[in-house]
Design a protein around this nucleic acid. Sequence first.
DNA 1: CAGTCTGTCCCGATTATCGGGACGCCTGTC
DNA 2: GACAGGCGTCCCGATAATCGGGACAGACTG
Lengths: 262, 262
Amino acid sequence: MDPATATRAAADTAPMARWVAVLEAFTDRDEWGVRDLATHLGLPRSAVHRILHEAVRQGLLAAAVTTGRFRVGPALARLAVVLADRLDVRSVARPVMERAAAELDETLVLALYSPGRRQFAAIDAVESSHPIRYIWGPLRQWSDLHTGSSGKGILAFLPDEEQDAIVAALPDPVPGPVPTPRARLRAELRDARARGHVVSHGERFPGAVGVSAPIRDATGRVIGDLVFGWPDNRNDPDKEARAGRIVMDAAARVSAALGYRP
Amino acid sequence: MDPATATRAAADTAPMARWVAVLEAFTDRDEWGVRDLATHLGLPRSAVHRILHEAVRQGLLAAAVTTGRFRVGPALARLAVVLADRLDVRSVARPVMERAAAELDETLVLALYSPGRRQFAAIDAVESSHPIRYIWGPLRQWSDLHTGSSGKGILAFLPDEEQDAIVAALPDPVPGPVPTPRARLRAELRDARARGHVVSHGERFPGAVGVSAPIRDATGRVIGDLVFGWPDNRNDPDKEARAGRIVMDAAARVSAALGYRP
DNA sequence: CAGTCTGTCCCGATTATCGGGACGCCTGTC
DNA sequence: GACAGGCGTCCCGATAATCGGGACAGACTG
């Protein structure tokens, strides 16, 4: 029994909160029985029984024919698949990006990770209003993860195994404007993960500063990142710190809107 | 305004039915206003207003900051993505396959389509109890769509554009045990689509009969099919007809469990 | 065949939903 | 600047739901 879930169900006495708790329970496990789910949620058996059966009547859940256990039904399956299909990172991120970009008044880029290619591509950008500003260039082009804060903002927050596999496949020292020993890259990634964001100077483009933070989807996977970029003649340590706070906050907001729970 | 949806919402007076109707409305459109949604569903404005705001309080929906419009919120996004992620065709199909295979007592195979490769692979099978029986062979191997009822059960039901692209890429005549003019293949596919299932004789394996019907996911896309196979010394027209009925019914059940609405 | 697990069901008290209508707000338009 | 028509919001008495403790029947097990 998960105390957090039980608390959440008990804290809000509104009838709907129970429905949400019951349906959300099926994100943890495929099948639930009445008593089982009732103790898991800390709710009376009769209440769970009623909700479960009403949900079956609505097609949200389905009762297994023999045992009295319940699974996800047609209506909920449809809702889940169609909504998940419509859920689009770009449109969810856009308003958050505009606010964040305006707050610092520097260019902010949205990049998405492709686990298959082990690369990323920028898919959207909000440019700063400065006459001299960071411009990503053509969107939807693939780039490697190991150079620049855009890539490292993803790489640093991938699961250890995945990150190791990518780093281990690189030559040692890692090529780039300034060749870096693999061990040094690993240390940088570790620090970035602890800090929650990445800062880089002139790795991808000379004279550019980059600050990035990861975006996660509802399953917790890192799916991309947000990246601030500006020319280093407008740079100072305080600005880097502010950019870090803003980009972490913005990335967290996008993750939350996508259903991620920290 | 969609009369079907409105009818569905009005038909069931249970409070939950309204909640389901409201949430399902977000599968049609990204944003809804109170009045807008109320007339769409044929419900009183006050009811929709209450449901919408309570849903926001639960995190299921989110209110756009400026306008009073509503979108999918964190909790619903999470529910959708995680459930869609957990939803597994194989485990959903298995019980249906076992019943259907037992009813005809012949081997029944589940095949999944890969739109990227434009091929399919068998991922599960329930074998018949006959000593001489159809056996698919190793699972998870890719095969082309244009030969045998397993592939045609998918190909025949793909959208016209997609089907045309695949057929047009084939040589004319189409190679196989019995070379077929492309026009003849197109006619076969058209007939199969009208009938709802595919019947083939010895196309993939000599001496084998195959009968298949398509499986669709919640978005209506054809994602694979179910295929009966048996040796032709156990065949007769009546059996083919029975197999057609059974496989169409089974495929429809799997599609429904995945959230497909005809 | 008792012990223990399961799901099911009943019923009075509680509490939410229900929905028609009034209200305030904003945005156009004449 | 008045007015119409769109919007979301809110109120409140009547209705109908949820609520939950507890009793019950069946299935399984040792």
